[in-house]
Design a protein around this nucleic acid. Structure first.
Length: 411
RNA sequence: GGAGAGAUGCCGGAGUGGACGAACGGGCUCGCCUGCUAAGCGAGUAAGCGGGGAUGACCCGCUUCGAGGGUUCGAAUCCCUCUCUCUCCGCCA
């Protein structure tokens, strides 16, 4: 979201920048709306001034002149109502237009679509030799129960059992514990949020169809980013407290309508999945540095599990609504290739403005960032394929083996 | 779910129809005083938007006393709705 008062000077820059995302915006229209809003306010302010003066005169009037003055004041007051209605409409129109604009891509971001993402780092050795897909491995080990999930909930829902459930539980809490020493506060937020929260972090108004809405009009969080980001807006932030870092392990709910196929099977794309999320609020100007910090946090998870990955800078058309710059971490699935397991985004002041996140006694807004550190379901899926052996068992990374109390699943 | 109370500036807290952007206290800032982390004295201290001005100092106007609507010439003050907080009851993990 951009500031109303910036429209006049910046609308044309926005248009140019947004076109890099493939977003077509009519800049002339924005400028026109802004001019209309200004002149509407001028008219209103003048009339309100006159009406105020008239009302004051009534209060001081003698009984004889009173009646006459009230009549005049009444007229003035009616004029204000009209002018106010006009002004409010103009403001609303402009706000609504701005509200629908996504964040501006960072200049570093490569131009184009999905295929234009830039691999900026590779770690570990990616063996892509043929293996069964993770869901088959999981099923034969008895740790994935898609039939059970379907029986309960229909297609697209996860059900982990036995070592699968244990693995999910260990991975989730282990990852949170990994982040805590780096200045993160752990949060266990509500999984249901108001519409205003979804708007604040940028999931609405554009992507309503992607999320589940309750009968009361609230929403199941599609990511705990929604909860964590909006949590920051409860009270103004203390400047000395920055950077503020929050992390949470939560389930996330997405409709993901109409997604089937090889790349989406098993745990890869579900209506419910849990992940560890990280959110940071930093001083304006510190966003880029924090972005790398968060990426490295996510990478350290994979490195400690001795899993190969690559870091990709997303291209402009691939950015999320609120993001200006995003790094994805991808892992090489033998069955279906490089697959996202973490996504870390710099949102600048975009969300702060939408969600009303302020710094106490300061005009500056904080920059916000969010990132996955990392997704539990996809991590399990990758572990299954990565550790798979000809005899059908799955070798666990050393660190995890300790925690699980076993080195191999299925023996 | 039922009953009641409340929401005012950075904080506390007055204010029940006009002279209230808001008493008073605290805090904070600047200055004075005191010769030295105390006490005292004085002044200042909301934000947003629009206009003027050199995109400065500054000046003018509008809006804002939880949010939205209503009554009125005029609302922090009256009415309605909503949100939130607190207390009691019910219900539960």
């Amino acid at each position: 979201m951009y500031a109303l008062q910036d429209v006049e000077g910046s609308a044309h820059d926005w248009v140019a920048s947004l076109s890099r995302r493939g977003e077509v915006v009519d800049g002339e229209h924005l400028v026109r709306l802004d001019q209309e809003r200004r002149s509407a306010q001028e008219r209103h302010d003048q009339m309100a001034h006159r009406a105020k003066e008239a009302a004051k005169r009534v209060g001081k009037a003698t009984p004889e002149e009173r009646e006459h003055l009230i009549l005049r004041a009444k007229e003035a007051s009616q004029g204000v109502d009209k002018a106010k209605g006009e002004m409010d409409r103009k403001k609303e129109t402009l706000k609504d237009a701005l509200f629908r604009l996504p964040n501006l891509p960072h200049p570093d971001v490569p131009l184009g679509g999905q295929d234009k993402g830039r691999v900026v780092k590779e770690w570990g050795k990616a063996s892509l030799e043929e293996r069964p897909p993770h869901d088959e491995i999981g099923k034969s080990l008895g740790i994935l129960d898609p039939e059970g999930a379907t029986h309960l909930s229909g297609s697209g829902w996860p059900c982990l059992r036995g070592d699968g459930a244990l693995l999910a539980r260990h991975l989730g809490s282990w990852m949170v514990e990994e982040h805590l020493p780096f200045g993160f506060e752990e949060v266990s937020p509500p999984f249901v949020v108001r519409t205003s929260a979804m708007e604040g972090s940028g999931q609405l108004p554009k992507f309503a169809s992607e999320s589940y809405q309750t009968e009361d009009g609230d929403w199941l969080i599609p990511t705990s980013e929604v909860a964590l980001v909006n949590l920051l807006g409860t009270d103004p932030l203390h400047e000395e407290a920055l950077p503020i870092r929050l992390t949470a392990l939560t389930p996330n709910f997405r409709r993901e309508a109409g997604t089937h196929g090889k790349r989406n099977r098993g745990l890869l794309r579900q209506h419910q999945f849990s992940k560890v999320e990280m959110v940071s609020a930093v001083k304006e100007g510190d966003g880029e540095e924090e972005l790398l910090f968060l990426v490295e946090r996510a990478e350290s998870i994979l490195e400690k599990l001795e899993l190969p990955y690559r870091r990709v800078m997303l291209a402009s058309e691939d950015l999320a609504f609120a993001s200006m710059k995003t790094f994805d971490l991808e892992v090489p699935f033998p069955s279906c290739g490089w697959t996202e397991i973490s996504s870390v985004s710099l949102c600048g002041t975009f969300q702060a403005r939408r969600a009303g996140i302020r710094i106490e006694r300061s005009r500056a807004l904080p920059e916000l960032l969010n990132g996955t550190g990392v997704a539990v379901g996809r991590l399990i899926a990758f572990l299954l394929e990565w550790g798979w052996q000809e005899n059908g068992s799955v070798v666990l990374p050393t660190l995890l083996a300790k925690r699980m109390g076993k080195e191999v699943l299925g023996l």
